[in-house]
């Protein structure tokens, strides 16, 4: 257990992203005061200054690396902290921004804001493509319980563990009706759980925002979806949208030539 007089120094930072993952910490409305009592919160966008020279015990970092500025910041933060936690899908899998890796440049360049050209610097990648990441809290956004539980476990002296079972486990425990059986393309069986199956609880199919489940059986899953009469291109797009960069390289989803956005 951490000594009473020394709370871990914690910082929240964001690279290119929507800041939604940072909110998954704030969303613990009823526990936020207790959580803040356990840690020394030294940095949080809009709430607490950036304190550039401070040394951290834990940094929660959201967002994707898609510019040189992002990469500089990532390297600086890695040097300043003992534990680096990738917070959310962008930092962990690349998420929607990384979908750009699968589209032709000519298709997306005209869609960009005119003045924000720095996001062209690099192909968007999750942070573990560049630096060592100690822990991952995936999800778009992460389950607020996970962020809370992560801090609790570190304070108790436990090693936080990533949930390794598929989304189906929690979906079944939540008593949902299987959306695959309803003919929908639900990525639950190949997606890492830990989200409390929040989407399927609302009868919306899983899009795989938490990245692949380590024990995923892709061949069987792809065959199942095709069997249900779905277009393999639709399936490929769905599987690539949140976790494309984390899918196995050799995975064959569709036989058609490269799809251009």
């Amino acid at each position: 257990m951490a000594k009473k007089d020394k709370k871990p120094v914690v910082g929240f930072y964001g690279l290119t992203g929507c800041a939604g993952c940072l909110l998954s910490f704030i969303f613990n409305e009823n526990e936020i005061v207790s959580l803040l009592g356990m840690v020394d919160l030294a940095a949080f966008p809009f709430i607490k200054g950036k304190q550039g020279d401070k040394e951290f015990d834990i940094i929660f970092l959201e967002g994707v690396v898609c510019s040189n500025d992002d990469l500089d910041m990532l390297k600086k933060l890695r040097a300043k902290t003992k534990i680096l936690v990738s917070l959310g899908a962008c930092a962990s899998t690349g998420c929607i921004p990384a979908y750009r890796n699968f589209i032709d440049e000519a298709k997306y360049l005209p869609l960009m804001y005119e003045k924000v050209h720095r996001i062209k610097d690099k192909d968007p990648k999750p942070i573990d493509a560049y630096v060592h990441v100690d822990f991952t809290i995936p999800g778009c956004p992460p389950n607020r319980e996970e962020v809370k539980s992560f801090i609790k476990q570190l304070i108790l002296g436990k090693t936080p563990r990533l949930y390794n079972d598929p989304v189906c486990v929690e979906c079944k425990l939540n008593g949902n009706h299987c959306l695959l059986d309803e003919g929908k393309i639900c990525l639950g069986p190949i997606t890492r759980g830990g989200c409390d199956s929040v989407c399927t609880n609302g009868r919306f199919e899983c899009w795989g925002c938490r990245g692949p489940c380590p024990d995923a059986n892709y061949e069987a899953f792809i065959a199942l979806i095709k069997d249900k009469g779905h277009n393999s291109r639709t399936l490929k797009e769905r599987m690539q949208s949140f976790a494309g960069l984390k899918l196995p390289d050799e995975l064959q989803i569709e036989d058609a030539p490269d799809y251009v956005g």
Partner: peptide
Amino acid sequence: DKCLSCAA
């Protein structure tokens, strides 16, 4: 080979 290991 078809088992998705979903524990349904």
